[in-house]
Amino acid sequence: MLYFAWVREAIGTGSERIDPPGEVTTVSALIEWLAGRSAGHAEAFADRARLRAAVDQRFVPLEAPLGDAREVAIFPPVTGG
């Protein structure tokens, strides 16, 4: 897992290795599962409308399947440029 910006700050780390159970098959389900890991995770993932995701460095909607993803990133809407 990779986290950026205020998602990273709320969770307290920019990256962590996880091993979710088999029934976690989408990004959305993964977020739900991660929210139970700590108060920081719960805070970061409280408002889904403010979250975006990438699976193996490709932007995807939260409903996207995880497949056999090696790297999943959760972050706020981007604000570059």
Binding site: A5, F59, A73, F75, P76, P77, V78, G80
Partner: peptide, 23 residues
Amino acid sequence: RLKTDAPFWKRETRGREARWVEQ
């Protein structure tokens, strides 16, 4: 396009107060 497609995040500091910029 880069403003919506590239994963950058801005954090502004004003004096002692820092905040993440909203899209």
